[in-house]
Computed example of a mutant assay.
Amino acid sequence: MSLPRTAVFAAAAVAALLALAAPPAAADGKPGKPGEPARPGHGETGAGRFLLTVSGSQDTWIRGVHLSCPDATGHHPHAAEACAVLHRAEGDPDRVTGTEHECTRQYDPVTATAEGEWNGRPVVWHKTFPNACALDVATGPVFRF
């Protein structure tokens, strides 16, 4: 049984994004460059790194960004807002609250994933939403890229 071409492409895209998102590791095992002191607050309160992805139905498309908090670094277009929301949710995507607005009832499912760590705790999260609008209502700026 062979995998569909789109599934193979999606897996390759996620692997490439993970490779790009991996921060350099210091000799002491903490994030940052070797010999560089740890940033104040990193690993203590509200600090985390995520690879965030959103994919279409049956992995017909995928996009992703790297987000690092509290510095709000990475390629996320709304990094500061996403970090603030994640901070309030203590890094748990299930506890994120978006902004309520009207959505159509069109069924065009999207799957969102967040993989990384928050305050040293691993986070692996994925959830499928009926459409992109429902994702935005549930997660606000976190998956708005």
Rank of each mutant, 00 (worst) to 15 (best):
A7H: 13
P40Y: 00
N119A: 11
K33G: 03
A21C: 13
Q58F: 13
L20D: 11
A7S: 12
A80V: 10
R5D: 11
A114N: 04
Y107K: 10
V124P: 00
K127S: 09
T99G: 04
V8A: 13
S68L: 10
V65G: 00
L135P: 03
R88C: 01
A7E: 13
V123I: 14
E81N: 09
S57K: 14
R63D: 14
P109S: 03
F145M: 07
G48C: 09
A11P: 00
R39A: 13
G140N: 07
F143I: 02
E44Q: 14
Q106H: 05
A12D: 15
E90Y: 07
A12H: 15
V124N: 12
T6K: 08
A80Q: 14
D136F: 01
T53C: 08
M1S: 07
R105D: 13
V54G: 02
G29A: 15
A89V: 06
T6N: 12
H76W: 06
E117D: 12
P4E: 12
P109Q: 06
V54C: 02
E36M: 11
K30R: 14
A10M: 06
T97I: 13
R39C: 02
G32V: 03
T99W: 01
T97M: 12
R144V: 00
D92A: 14
L51G: 01
N119M: 07
R88V: 03
L52C: 08
S68V: 10
R49V: 03
A19L: 11
P141H: 04
K127Y: 03
L135Y: 01
T53L: 08
R88S: 12
A11N: 04
L18V: 02
R88L: 08
Y107C: 00
A84W: 05
A82D: 09
V137R: 14
P141V: 04
P40V: 00
V123W: 02
W118V: 07
D92H: 10
A79R: 07
F50E: 08
D136I: 01
G29I: 12
A72E: 03
H126A: 13
D59P: 00
R63T: 14
E44R: 14
G98R: 01
A12W: 10
L135F: 04
P122M: 02
W118C: 07
Q106T: 14
V14I: 14
E81D: 15
C83Q: 05
G116D: 08
A47S: 15
L51F: 00
A89D: 04
P130W: 00
T73V: 06
P40L: 00
F50R: 09
C69V: 05
E115K: 11
L86E: 08
N119V: 09
